[in-house]
Each structure stands twice: as C-alpha cells, then as structure tokens.
Design a protein around this nucleic acid. Structure first.
Lengths: 132, 132
DNA sequence: TATTTACCTACTTAATCAGTAGGTTATGCA
DNA sequence: TGCATAACCTACTGATTAAGTAGGTAAATA
C-alpha cells in the first residue's frame, strides 16, 4: 500500500506542475494549500531534490520548482523515489537477496507479472495527465 | 506490499490444492514442506476456515482440506481474506471514511483505476493456474 | 485413555509510519 | 551589516503493524 510519503510527494509535484513555470513556490504555501504538515514535507522533499526532479532556492522569494515540464515526470518515478520501490512482495524488492526457493516457487511468476503491470501503469502516467 | 500472511496462506492453499482430494493434510506436514513456522500458520489459517475455503478435522489423521476444487479459488479472494484488502491507498480501504478532498482530488481516479487493475489481475488467477 | 491434530489467546521484539521539534545554512534586500 | 525568509538537517516520539513464540484447550478416534 502506498504510504503518505509517496502520496504527499505526488500532490506536491502536481501542485508545482500547476504553477509551472511561475518560479519558486514556498513549501509553506503548498503545505497549507494541500493541508499537509510543513515539517513532514520538509522531510520528504529532499529526496526529490537529490534526484534532480525539483530544485530549491533558499531565500526570501525562494521555494521549490520543477526542473522540467510536467510532461517529463512519470508518476512511477516519483513513487519509486519516495516509497523506495514498487515491488509487491519482499523477494522482488531492490535490496532483497535471492530466495532459495525461487527455482520452483509457484507464485513467483505471478508476482513478477504483477510487478510489471504495476510499473507499466504508473510509468504510463505523467504529471501533466494529473493536473486537471 | 503483500505481507507474509497473504503469501504463506497462498502457498498453503496451493499445497492443499496439489494434494486435493487426498483427504486431510496435517498443517505440520505443510509447515515443514513449505518451511513456514507451524505456530504462525496456526494463526493465519482460522480466517480461511471461517470463510469456508478450507475445513479442518481435529483428530489423528486429521488436518485441513479444500472444500472445493482448485479451480474454484481465486487468488484475489485468498489475499482479500488474509490481507484484509487489496486497496493501494488508505482512502480506498474497506473501513476508510470518505476523504473530504475526494471531490477535487487529482489522484483519486488514478488510484481507483489501479485498484481495479489489481483486483482484476488477482481475480483472474485460480489455484489451479498455480499448481503446475 | 492416549494421541493427534486443530483451535485459541496472550505475549514479544523489531520495524515502520506519520509526524514534532529545534535547530543551521544560504541568499537577497533594506 | 544585519534581517527576513526559506530550504535543509538531525533527532526524537508515540502509535501501529509484522512476524513470529509460547503455552495452553478442545475434538475425536484408535
């Protein structure tokens, strides 16, 4: 299940997209507009900054803005960065060690196929698809 | 992400399906065959019994067995019973109160569509599809 | 009556979620 | 030069869940 981290990040990104390219938007504004704790957002956003998706300007009149146009951002990538992974089961997660039962695991192909369906779905949607 | 509860339950169901209709299989056997803690399984299985999917016989020579043929069991239903829900976000979960932002939530339709994709996928697979 | 099995309830330990709290740094502006 | 604004950083908390353990009770047959 997608946690608030990923969902909030997505809502912030949509908000930034709707105001693109108006310049920098302070997180204080977005937090109150989206009704999300500012302090919590401050904790979530650095991962998006580090990934290069957004950039922050640290001064009066500063804030955050997208580094590209809304159509460049796939929902899948935003969720991957904030949630860590889109894998439906632990054994398909990024840091998972290969399961020794994998060879004759009856369910593995099903999980793999669902993983693909999930990735394909969220990668097929961009911010511009969501901004109205 | 699907937890061990759902994954173990599914493996037990597949195991039972592979030995259907040989009679009752003791959970001790399945636990060791599947390398899952017996005590943990004892905690997971009652929900499947209460749902009528399997039945337990409480005596020597007893154990569990499916109540119908393997083709009657949808993976989606097994996961719903053991995981509680297949909803990708909290606001679509079973006991969730309606979100007051739902009216103009930009992401809700996306989550709903993904919920449908998820349900359809797991409901399209039965135990007989998984037993080789 | 002993044995085998399901069934039941409580407990534990570690991790994760969803934030709070309290600071420090960067930068433009008066 | 100092002030205001905003990002950025680190630590803490309190509640919930995950993944089991532990120790029993109940049913039924051989």
């Amino acid at each position: 299940m997608i946690s608030t981290r990923g969902r909030y990040a997505l809502r912030v990104m949509i908000d930034l997209a709707e105001h693109y390219p108006d310049g920098y938007i302070p997180m204080k504004i977005i937090a109150s507009r989206q009704n999300i704790s500012l302090k919590y957002l401050e904790q979530i956003l650095p991962s998006l900054t580090r990934s290069g998706m957004i950039e922050g300007m640290q001064r009066k009149g500063g804030g955050y803005r997208l580094t590209s146009g809304p159509e460049e951002y796939r929902v899948g990538d935003i969720l991957r960065i904030t949630e860590g992974d889109l894998a439906p089961v632990a054994c398909l997660g990024c840091g998972a060690k290969m399961c020794e039962r994998a060879g004759d695991c009856k369910t593995l192909p099903m999980w793999k196929e669902f993983y693909k369906i999930t990735s394909d779905y969220f990668d097929s949607i961009t911010l511009s698809d969501l901004m109205r």
